[in-house]
Design a protein around this nucleic acid. Structure first.
Lengths: 337, 337
DNA sequence: CTTGGCACTCATAGGGAGGGAGTGCCAGGA
DNA sequence: TCCTGGCACTCCCTCCCTATGAGTGCCAAG
């Protein structure tokens, strides 16, 4: 259907359009890339490519620009992910390894990704449900008030205040704490509900109300935090691009956790690179936006996703390289901590 | 210098310009406000106002627009803070009271403020140094690894991992924890360094290295967190305004904690409303931006600041009303929790 | 299948011309 | 002393027109 030269033409169109942001014509193509044929020949190829829906012209007598379908073909078959330079790798490593807690890791990551790609970066916090319990702590903070602290193996810490409504003895709390830790240590958060089901029966009757209160808050925490937090950075990069219509929509999307989640994709999705181009996006109003995302995690377990959001007219090989590299390094950092 | 009518003219110009975004002429003024005099008279007044630097014209034969000095006079003497409607107050109260931890309070506040004012809202996390210690917890999370959790009276929780380099007995930790809590309970964070100074001497010599490690991390936490976190929301509102040049600068400022801090002002500043108009801002590039900010806190103690960032051409009375109301409610919520 | 030639299309930039909103000034009136 | 109506003037903005030029599609010849 499409011979090698036509594919080369498409690739050249994508590359030129990405770098110049102007419709590219047949003459400019043969000048910039040595294709060995005349502009007229290229025009014939372009006509075919347009008929097949890979490129389009904004108006008659203008050059061609790629369609979403064209970008898709480019990403799938005509380009290779561009590895980062050694200097960039080292910069990532030193920048990320300076982080001292999970918030900091995520914050540094999102800023780094925005800077590397010169676009808007988005990072999802590691999912709670895919983590396991490292430690549970119960701290009396006032009369009839406890603080529950839950620490996961991904370094995440959740804390909630519990109203007990009755006075509780110190050693009851210590006992409960010990029990919680023995029965939850290393437990997947998803398994916590079943793991604690039998707990009330192992304690004296007078402590039952307290146990109930603690457990209900614990389970509540797991549920509420299930919708995972997402942060972004690099919004200023939007201003440089020619985003007339898109700008507002993108900014709105960035502040809607739910929309962002859909854009990044499910954690269950392929942990390697995912690219969503223009209308492939689930969201209206992001028709001129592409998303390059990847999962990250510890070992072969994906904990969350991160990615980059930019105009369909973006440097896919470079962006994909940056996203992949950052995802890997974050995984390493999380594994070490 | 300026009689009542001239002031009325200035007020009318500000109000009309804010609502229409177009230079306002003498005829339009007498039509919209019943000033009881003719356009020619208004023109004379305008000439005086312009000579004094309160208004200017973009070009000859155009209407007038307020200068920064004009807005300043308007804010200081010609307008009153516009209280929120009952419905708005109730909305704030119910929305904020649903929050379940500090992160949530701050997150809800910033979104709420952005929505109320239809501008970019900025909220600074309650300062650590102005809080006091509610509880300190030490949790062994692995061999030679402790987790230090610091809980403040403002609901803030900081956690850090400590590498002990040597094995530590459980009861040494318990002892240290007890000591820390007795000597730090209720202590201002600023006073922590002196409060713990003598602590190593109260423990057996073999535990000294551990104590040193814990204390150094504790003090480090206080220092590092001294540069307080700031969050923002409502960036999408920037797209609607006619921010050609400003947009990029504002977006950049929003991602620079340091710049945002300077914009909001020092916590020590007046806890009531502060307005910075255009060139009054410390930052280059925000020459067409105004900031309305206020301190918030518990009781009569200011813990941090929050505010709104928008074009100099903004609805000052309404914005000031919203900022003041939200600051008060956040204070209430913090006091209750 | 490729190529050069040629007529055609159409976005874009530049140059007046006209309309209109707004101003400054002045002389007369309260 | 202050207000008012009249009047000439200044420019911005819009519209229209034209020229330009990049780019195309088609065709006939190599």
């Amino acid at each position: 259907m499409l011979d090698d030269r036509k594919l080369a033409v498409l690739r050249a169109i994508v590359e030129d359009y990405v770098s110049t942001n102007e419709p590219v014509g047949s003459k400019a193509l043969v000048d910039r890339h040595n294709l060995g044929v005349s502009p007229a020949t290229i025009r014939n190829d372009m006509a075919v490519l347009e008929e097949q829906g890979y490129i389009t012209q904004p108006h008659t007598s203008a050059g061609r620009i790629p369609t979403d379908k064209g970008y898709r073909l480019f990403v799938d078959r005509l380009s290779t992910v561009k590895p980062l330079s050694g200097a960039e790798r080292r910069a990532i490593e030193t920048f990320l390894s300076g982080a001292y807690d999970l918030d900091d890791v995520v914050g540094r990551t999102v800023r780094l990704l925005a800077q590397l790609t010169r676009q808007v970066a988005v990072v999802q916090y590691p999912s709670l449900t895919r983590s396991s319990v490292r430690h549970v702590e119960l701290v009396p903070v006032a009369a009839r008030r406890l603080l529950l602290v839950l620490i996961t193996n991904t370094g995440r810490v959740e804390q909630r205040v519990i109203e007990t409504h009755v006075d509780v003895a110190e050693d009851s709390i210590a006992h409960l704490r010990a029990l919680l830790n023995t029965c939850l240590d290393g437990c997947w958060l998803g398994d916590v509900p079943t793991a604690v089901a039998d707990l009330p029966n192992q304690l004296p009757v007078e402590d039952r109300p307290v146990v109930a209160a603690v457990l209900s808050v614990l389970l509540e925490t797991l549920v509420e935090k299930h919708d995972e937090k997402i942060v972004f950075a690099g919004a200023a990069n939007l201003a440089s691009v020619d985003f007339s219509e898109g700008l507002r929509n993108v900014l709105e999307a960035l502040e809607e956790q739910v929309v962002l989640m859909r854009l990044l994709g499910e954690v269950g999705d392929s942990s390697s690179l995912t690219v969503r181009i223009g209308t492939e996006n689930p969201d209206e109003g992001l028709r001129t936006t592409s998303v390059v995302a990847a999962g990250y995690g510890v070992g072969n377990q994906t904990l969350a996703r991160l990615g980059v959001l930019g105009p369909t007219r973006m440097d896919y090989p470079g962006t994909m390289g940056a996203v992949r590299a950052v995802a890997r390094y974050v995984g390493q950092i999380l594994a070490e901590s």
